[in-house]
Amino acid sequence: MARAPVRSSQAKVVSNILEKHGYQLGQYLGKGAYAIVWEAYFKKWRTNVAVKVLMKDKAEAEFLSKFLPREIQVWKGLKHPNLINFYQSIETTNRVYIMLELAPGGEVMDKIRMKGACDERTAGKWFEQLCQGMAYIHSKGVVHRDLKLENLLLDQHDNIKISDFGFCKFAATDVKNLKQVQLSETYCGSYAYVPPEVLQGIPYNPFLSDVWSMGVILFTLRTGKLPFDDSNLRRLLKQMIKGPIFTQKHASISLECKDLVRGTLASDVHRYSLHTIFDHPWMLPLVRERPPYLRDMDALYLRPHLRRSTQRLMTIRHTDGGTRSTANLVSSTRLVHPEALRSPSPPPSPPAHRPPLHARPPLQRSWGGREEGGRAESERERERGRGLAKDGRRRE
């Protein structure tokens, strides 16, 4: 691989460090709040990798001391064909270098933005691979907590690779037997992908939260748009309680697929487990190999302790008399603050006309799906109005 031109002093520093460890710096791939990502060539393996470079001076102390070590600890212990592989981490005085498997196919989000909704065959292939990867992750007692289209990458054969484990954690208190679940009180993720119990700020089962996010992904794969409009939190919650809406435009979606979407986007009391998803009629013809550990994971999805919280949410089920606007395919990971739902908010303005997703120009996006500029800026302005953290980063 030919070396890309070095255009900055920072790139020179990164290049020098990588050279010492056998890597040759390649092209720039993108950036996030704390990190810049380059492609690099690992001389020993004769293969290209992705190098995520985190700048310590831009990251907060809690991120460096808590979240980053946990992400590395969990990620390097996970090995599955549908996960981005973790190779190595290098720490220097000013930076942390994380070497990861390169996904040359890019993000699934970009495919949807450029081409629109997937056909049933493609959506089935990708969703089955997502289920295989998530079943493996859950079998290790780990939850992802930030599943979204931006974090689903594609290899050279268009196979799904789950990425970005910044919110992951061990949530099963008995990992060996997978019998007990530690409820999560970190209200994190992207508004359009988190379940209603997260928006309400109620301790929730994170394994069921991942299932909800998978349902949002399946809906979006088949329709080309997100199921819920996240521009207003109160309206978002009401739409979630009502459930996904299929119209005449979705006549090409099979009844079995629609039923699976409704089951994954149900209340926490009735939401499907991964075991149920693999047994669903729409999934059975798609499953390449049934994970042997599925039946041992049933206890991870128990939710009698969440019944009261769901009943409280149901009290607003029939209060939405407004119209639904098409949700834009833009999401950014942030901390969800329940106070934003309790504080008064001005009435939403009528949604502007939006062209079809495949006709819109692509956003400038950083590696891992954190947008720069464009709509992301308006989202930050809305966050400040709701009292959210300005940077939208993870906290606990």
Rank of each mutant, 00 (worst) to 15 (best):
R393I: 09
K79L: 10
Q27F: 05
E128T: 15
G243F: 05
P348S: 11
I98Q: 00
G387L: 03
G321K: 12
N94G: 09
A352G: 10
P346R: 01
I90N: 02
L149G: 03
L149R: 10
R382Q: 14
P351M: 08
P355Q: 10
W126E: 05
E339G: 04
G385I: 01
A50T: 02
V269G: 00
P203I: 08
H275R: 14
A40V: 04
V14I: 15
L178V: 03
V108I: 14
H80M: 11
P304M: 10
Y191H: 10
A135D: 05
K169H: 02
T93E: 15
Y97P: 08
V194T: 10
E339F: 05
T310E: 02
R234V: 11
R7N: 14
C188I: 07
E381S: 13
A389N: 13
V269L: 06
R384S: 13
Q364C: 13
E377V: 15
P362R: 13
R382Y: 06
Y28G: 04
T319C: 12
I245N: 10
E256N: 14
I241S: 03
V74K: 02
V269F: 04
Q182D: 11
L341I: 01
Y34T: 11
L147D: 01
A327E: 01
S378K: 14
S213G: 01
P351Q: 14
P362W: 02
W45G: 15
E120R: 08
V6C: 13
A192G: 02
T264Y: 03
D158R: 11
R295N: 13
D155V: 07
L265C: 14
R234E: 01
W38N: 12
Y187Q: 07
M109N: 08
Y41H: 15
D110R: 12
M214T: 00
A192N: 08
L260M: 11
Y204H: 10
Y23H: 11
I137S: 06
Q156I: 05
R303E: 00
E120M: 12
G189L: 08
Q88C: 10
M283P: 00
G189H: 06
A4P: 03
V142Q: 05
F170T: 14
L286W: 04
E381W: 04
I160L: 15
T247F: 05
A266Y: 00
M114H: 09
K242R: 15
F165K: 05
H275G: 09
D259S: 15
R394W: 00
V142P: 03
H157C: 10
E19G: 05
D391V: 02
K12C: 11
L147C: 07
Q132N: 11
F207K: 10
L54R: 07
G30H: 10
E62T: 13
F278Q: 06
P104M: 09
L218N: 03
G141P: 07
L306Y: 01
W126I: 08
G201C: 01
P5Q: 13
F127N: 03
I202V: 13
